[in-house]
Design a protein around this nucleic acid. Structure first.
Length: 263
DNA sequence: ATGGTTGAATATCAA
């Protein structure tokens, strides 16, 4: 058995202390981070190493984006893809010794206006998802886990108000359609919803709310998927809501799952 | 309809 967590950390250097707190309190075998906002060489890898996470596979750039996989189980670098040719550090993959591949993704947020004719970023988001679909169609994943900030809340109960968010980027029908097409192409199973089929499970709350907890205007943007061949091994999903209340928090909280597979 | 906050890098851009 092993456990895996995904967390958009919104600066791995500013929040290195929150990362070590999570490693200490939750001790996932693997932690996938997004929005590290750091070149790889400036990620505090030694700190994580000293906390028992001796392996790291990462991609980074100055100021924006950035993804990292920390692990206390041995992992090897399994490459990356530049979906939609944006030149951004938004994907990295690692492989466990048991042959399981971990994909860590940070899908573009997509800007404010959900119309690719007037908002370049929205088009890039859709293109990114289309290329994910095509890649999974060309090479159907097996013994694979895909996690990350997918920046889309696909279901009605993945947002605080389906009606209010239908025209808000992250919950528009065209985005949901693109996300589900990528999921279907890879025969990916949403492990969080396999475990917890109904009800709100928000993983993100805006910084712009006076009281995130009381108003609870959240969205489920962070996901854990598994390829169909290993989906039955996934269980014990959790969304760590209290982390949003930690000192100087990220606007996202970790999502966790366990897999009953030999390591 | 609007504005609200945060981080990186240092004037804005991205989220």
């Amino acid at each position: 058995m092993f456990t895996i967590a995904t967390w958009n950390i919104n600066s791995v250097r500013l929040r290195a202390g929150l990362v070590t707190r999570l490693l200490s309190e939750e001790a996932p075998d693997i932690l996938c981070l997004q929005e590290c906002k750091s070149p790889v060489e400036k990620i505090p890898a030694q700190l994580f190493h000293d906390a028992g996470y001796r392996w790291m596979v990462a991609r980074g750039q100055r100021g924006y984006n950035g993804v990292a996989i920390l692990s206390r189980l041995p992992i090897s670098d399994a490459g990356d893809r530049d979906y939609a040719r944006l030149g951004h550090a938004r994907h990295v993959a690692a492989r466990l010794e048991n042959g399981v591949t971990i994909h860590n993704l940070y899908v573009p947020a997509g800007g404010d206006i959900p119309d690719r004719e007037v908002n370049l970023k929205f088009g890039q988001k859709l293109d990114f998802l289309t290329e994910m679909r095509d890649a999974f169609h060309a090479d159907r994943p097996s013994r694979s886990i895909l996690v990350g900030d997918l920046n889309i809340a696909p279901r009605e109960d993945d947002v605080w108000s389906h009606k209010a968010l239908l025209k808000v980027v992250s919950h528009t029908p065209v985005e949901v359609e693109h996300l589900l097409a990528a999921q279907d192409a890879g025969h990916w199973v949403d492990i969080t919803r396999q475990d917890i089929p109904e009800g709100p499970l928000f993983s993100w709350w805006s910084y712009r709310n006076r009281d995130w907890d009381a108003s609870d205007r959240g969205r489920r943007l962070d996901h854990i998927w598994a390829s169909a061949d290993i989906a039955a091994a996934g269980h014990a999903s959790r969304v760590l809501r209290p982390v949003r209340g930690w000192e100087q928090p990220s606007d996202h909280v970790p999502v966790v799952a366990a897999f009953d597979l030999d390591v």
